[in-house]
């Protein structure tokens, strides 16, 4: 309250100093123990045996391979899920069709299902004893315990991210802009690229970044379908676990620091995007800046 007033205001909920301070205190203590302490430990432990060992772990071929595999999974899964998310959001918000509600629910399923359940389900679909297992085996196509399995599992887990960001925004925007564009003679594609996409671009990027962070950090589903073959099907999160089970705590922390670093970059990008998203109005207020 910055208003200059000496009048005593009637107390509101949370206005009592004791209440307010203890609430804030609890939050700080929890943040310190639950979030900050583990992050600090990662840094401290990673370098506990010196820079040399940290470097050795990071440039170890197995670690490098795990990093590459994680990046590869992200490079494939994120674009596919982005296209899927845009298509789903576009369909749900701009068209009326039978089964729309059903589609909305289906999109949300990966959020409510434990990733490990998804992994096990894939075992039953693509595994040797699974539905398509024999056929795949006969045609010498390897999905499980290979890179395709990792990518499919990652895609399942992260399918909702982009759509979830776009649907509320596109619902709020309604169909007027698209209708206006079409009535002016624009084709569907033209409308999408010139009208729809520019108006959701920040939300889209936001969804992509969250999706990417999740793909890179995914453990549960991937651990079931990848088979944990060192140097072959080991993603970074799996590699961390492997190092840890090898009693190589320092190595585990070193590898973990890479993931933590990715997380930090994600948060920075996310905050920057939120600024952009919020700053969209002020941006249009600046006539010098043409966005089209």
């Amino acid at each position: 309250m910055s208003t200059v007033s000496t009048r005593r205001k009637p107390p509101r909920v949370g206005d009592a100093p004791l209440f307010r301070r203890s609430l804030i205190g609890i939050v700080f203590v929890l943040v310190a123990f639950v979030i900050l302490a583990p992050l600090v430990i990662i840094g401290v432990e990673a370098f506990s045996k010196g820079w040399q060992l940290y470097r050795d772990t990071v440039v170890h071929p197995d670690t490098l391979h795990a990093v590459m595999l994680t990046v590869l999974a992200a490079l494939i899964a994120v674009p596919i899920n982005t296209v899927f998310g845009i298509a789903a959001a576009w369909a749900i918000t701009k068209f009326d069709f039978r089964g729309k509600r059903f589609l909305l629910v289906v999109i949300e399923i990966p959020f409510s299902v434990s990733p490990i359940v998804a992994g096990v389900a894939y075992l039953f679909v693509y595994g040797l004893q699974g539905l398509f297992g024999p056929w795949l085996d006969a045609h010498d196509i390897k999905i499980l315990f290979a890179v395709p399995g990792i990518i499919i599992a990652s895609m399942f887990v992260t399918a909702p991210f982009v759509a979830r960001e776009l649907i509320p925004l596109m619902q709020a925007q309604g169909r007027d802009l698209e209708e206006a564009s079409t009535s002016l003679g624009a084709s569907g594609w033209r409308t999408f690229f010139s009208v729809t996409l520019p108006n959701v671009k920040w939300a889209l990027l936001y969804g992509v970044i969250l999706c990417n962070a999740r793909v890179m950090g995914e453990f549960g589903a991937v651990s079931v379908v990848s088979g944990n073959i060192r140097g072959q099907t080991n993603t970074l999160p799996l590699h961390i676990e492997l190092l840890y089970h090898d009693y190589n705590a320092t190595g585990a922390f070193a590898a973990a620091s890479i993931l933590a670093l990715i997380a930090v970059f994600t948060i920075i990008a996310k905050v920057a995007l939120e600024r952009q998203g919020a700053g969209r109005v002020s941006k249009t207020e600046n006539p010098a800046e043409k966005t089209s």
Partner: peptide
């Protein structure tokens, strides 16, 4: 047909001139 929407449905990311030019461009 030329349609004027109740809430105008101007393209918020385009200038006034770009809004008017849109129909001719597409």
């Amino acid at each position: 047909v030329g349609f004027v929407f109740q809430h105008y449905a101007l393209f918020p990311h385009m200038t006034v001139a770009d809004n008017i030019a849109f129909g001719m461009k597409v």
